[in-house]
Design a protein around this nucleic acid. Structure first.
Lengths: 266, 266
DNA sequence: TACACACGTCTCTTGTAAGAGACAATCGCT
DNA sequence: AGCGATTGTCTCTTACAAGAGACGTGTGTA
């Protein structure tokens, strides 16, 4: 029952979508919620627990789980009462990767960068309006800076977030950031104007460095990957100890930008 | 519009599930069909084409696609009219892999075996009653023996199929094999009793070799991976030219069995 | 210019899937 | 043994999603 920080297992009522009331819910939506729930918890979940966690009626949950297991999207896990992702999802995921040059090459570049520098390296993208770690390669440090693949983090908390929004106008940016997103884990609040300034600056300099935003011990270096001139499709980034020297930081940024540039254009 | 052999883009009306008539279809099922369709075609598909390919009403298809794109399970591809798998599926797939020791280690063993031998190597499992290539690593041969990940092939066509069914009694085996499955690509028919004998023999010897079944040029060597004593969870296999010498085949089988054994028990 | 065919969006109807709830069977605790 | 909580299955009702089809637009071609 490990709970990592703000990851309580379910999006804290946030993302403020419409919730018409206690009325009926479409089966497909229930399924999408189930998948998200499993992803958030990263472990097999008992069916009853699933129903409870999603505020879904038990009978419906049983039915849907059965259908998904039959389809192979879910699998009954070990002890025979819990479910988790199934092979089909793995196969679909691999198909996605095969069909996606950027992802395939990006993973290689990230792995290489992490090997080369010994630091934790990540490939990040926008995923339905949220910053998402698509692939990460842990560094060689004794106490590693962890960050789970697929983790979604508010854009203003990260260097990558500033780059991913480069090129969007103010209204677009505002639309992608909620009030909550501006509050850092330690309670400090990011000023929206500062954030937008950061984005503009990042756009010009072609990289971004943030210190002690998500936590007090790390620094985040990011460089953009372009899918077309001006269009930031992804970022590569390095997560390093906050006391990394200016000089080394500079070196790392150079390496990072080089690899990110190699990914660009497609 | 490449069509590889028997892969016409849609399971040839097979798998004989009930089709009540032309009545209404559940949205979730439509979605599952869409995912299968995309997987079978391995490319982005226009929405209209999807509807046609699935015999689904256009309006419904548009609605479902929109929902899935919003959820990130699908993505609008390149030219902006076609859809394919989305990042969410990739993330879920990676989560599946992370949670699955056998798969994670199996991939490594397969990659190592293929590097070591220069031959095409695969990890295979049963997937809702069908033989499925879960991971494959191409060999070093000039004209490679291809086999797409996720491809599903009738059990009697393969060496792995014989091992995956080891331990099941006759009625179970019969239930998993249709008449069609017994007909090889070149039209020859596998005798059900021979097949069941093969399975029993494979079970005892702990490996299986088949020649010229799926095509006339290849030989298939397979070894079982056990999740519990007697329970075959997966197979590792090598696909080699049919004229591979007895001696080399023996060597390869030994290597294969060694690696498969290393995967077993868990 | 006219024709055939795709695409994307909307509206309205009705068949049916989501859900409430009852049930028996287990499990874990005291 | 006695009690509460959980599990898996089943039945029945009705709110609502699936689907038919019309509409406006864009594109290729004869």
């Amino acid at each position: 029952m490990q709970e990592s920080e703000a990851l309580t297992g379910w999006p804290s009522e946030g993302a403020g979508e419409e919730r018409p009331a206690g009325s009926r819910e479409k089966g497909l939506n229930r399924v999408l919620n189930m998948l998200e729930f499993l992803h958030a918890n990263q472990r097999a979940i008992a069916i009853g627990e699933l129903a409870k966690g999603l505020n879904a009626p038990r009978s419906t949950t049983y039915t849907l789980v059965r259908e998904l297991v039959e389809a192979g999207l879910l699998e009954m896990a070990g002890d025979g009462n819990r479910v988790y992702f199934g092979k089909k999802l793995y196969l679909y995921g691999m198909a996605y990767m095969r069909g996606n040059d950027l992802l395939r090459r990006g993973r290689q570049e990230v792995d290489a960068l992490s090997r080369e520098t010994g630091e934790t390296s990540e490939l990040c993208m926008l995923q339905s309006g949220r910053y998402t770690i698509i692939h990460s390669s842990p560094g060689a440090r004794p106490f590693r800076i962890s960050s789970a693949t697929g983790l979604q983090i508010p854009l203003p908390w990260t260097a990558s977030g500033r780059l991913l929004l480069a090129g969007l106008d103010r209204s677009r940016i505002e639309a992608m950031v909620t009030e909550d997103d501006l509050v850092l884990p330690d309670g400090r609040k990011v000023d929206l104007d500062d954030f937008i300034d950061d984005i503009a600056r990042a756009r010009v300099t072609g990289y971004c460095v943030t210190s002690g935003l998500v936590d007090a011990y790390t620094k985040c270096l990011a460089a953009p990957v372009f899918s077309a001139p001006g269009k930031v499709e992804a970022t590569m980034c390095l997560v390093v100890p906050i006391d990394t020297s200016e000089a080394r930081t500079g070196e790392l940024v150079a390496l990072l930008r080089e690899r990110a540039a190699r990914l660009s254009i497609s």
